[in-house]
Design a protein around this nucleic acid. Structure first.
Lengths: 227, 227
DNA sequence: GGTACTTCTTGAACACGTTCAAAACAAGGA
DNA sequence: TCCTTGTTTTGAACGTGTTCAAGAAGTACC
């Protein structure tokens, strides 16, 4: 039973965290590829085999790190959109907030998202292993919509958080390829695409646009089935 | 000077092609990861070092293969859209044609596109090394637009081929993650999204929609600058 | 305290992609 | 025929991620 003084459990958790901390430090210092498992183990003062006892692969080591970014983003974004009621402003804030938090890690974040692009990898944003993080992110987008005063086709409203999450994945994809200073191209993408999205969403209530809007929602729903 | 009977040059080219052929066979048989460079070399009856004399890496081996798919797609798609004048039909045909041609290779195609997701990799669709193939694909999309009778906002018309190419990249991304039999989910995506795109494109001429449409085009143009 | 059981740790060994110095081969000129 | 120069081929060796049998350390029960 876990308690305040159960030394062996604490020790184990300590070793685990020591390994992941060392790994993150070395990744940021030298990049993912140039950091070897031997170096991580040596830096943490354990054997290679021990690192593999806690993490099943080198890839796995960054999962914890990914969770950390996601957690920071949720907290910071919730804080920043509090009180704001305009849909576009809320969405823009959430996305820019992600760019802020992820900025220091872009260098090896790239490597991370390359691994994540593998559909077989548990790091894929679409995988079962990522479903908790994914649901949390979609939940944030739901807050963005629900906390705003935007008027929407009700059909669209239910689906919108998921669509916004997909859009965020698109922004991340762009960010991974973004080599501009301070990722200012990614910021431009957000600054300018968000108002457009907001206008498109508003247009969804127009009669000419409605059937198209409905069909888009239907299609996404069908594609999401059994995935 | 290359001629009909310059045996040593022919020999070199023969070895190169023998290696790539063997590699492709083994990749399709066993998958990319499970095929070792040693196995490829052995299968081709050469030494490992020799394979590296012709191809600088294992990744590089699939570049030739990628070019082959692209070439087949260009030929087959041009053939299939000949005579068709409806924009939606032309676009749908081109995209479904790609799915047809790529189908046998989905198994290790996945691995290929994972490598391609790395922005640093020469295999990235956005890299300089891929610019020739990229331009060819965009050119095909231009044929799709120009050979059709679609009426468009002229601002949009110039940019549309590039946008359609981007859309195709999106379809490929979906396809990579598609585990359904015969990739029927990807086919559904194409079948149903293309008519929607066509309707959206047509809507671009409506007064309410125009400013939005213009801004989208501007944004894409700015984002494409110096990239 | 001794004994069985689980958790944790080790480092040698393996398989793979990749490199490289050296050898083999080809071709042209003396 | 021998020498020179450039191309092609070799396979041992290196560095890497990963595995695994073995042992050490800790825990629980008698």
């Amino acid at each position: 039973m876990p308690g305040a003084n159960v030394p062996h459990v604490a020790k184990s958790e300590e070793t685990r965290s020591l390994i992941v901390t060392t790994a993150m430090r070395l990744f940021t210092e030298n990049g993912y590829d140039r950091t070897t498992m031997r170096a991580i183990a040596a830096g943490a003062g354990v054997s290679v085999g021990n690192a593999y006892y806690y993490f099943s692969s080198k890839e796995q080591l960054i999962q914890g790190f990914y969770d950390e970014i996601a957690r920071q983003h949720l907290d910071a974004a919730r804080d920043r959109i509090d009180g704001e009621t305009a849909f576009a402003a809320r969405l823009k804030t959430v996305l820019l907030c992600w760019l802020d938090i992820a900025e220091p890690y872009q260098r090896f974040g790239t490597q991370f998202f390359v691994n994540a692009a593998d559909p077989e990898s548990p790091l894929s944003p679409f995988s079962d292993d990522s479903s908790a993080a994914r649901e949390a992110s979609i939940g944030l987008m739901r807050e963005v919509v629900d906390g705003s005063d935007v008027k929407l086709d009700p059909e669209l409203r239910g689906q919108l958080p998921e669509l916004l999450w997909l859009f965020q994945m698109g922004v991340v994809l762009f960010w991974v390829h973004d080599r501009s200073a301070g990722q200012k191209r990614s910021r431009m993408l957000v600054e300018r695409s968000v108002p457009l999205l907001a206008r498109l969403a508003a247009l969804s209530r127009l009669r000419v646009f409605r059937p198209v809007s409905r069909e888009i929602v239907d299609l996404i729903q069908d594609l999401a089935k059994k995935d």
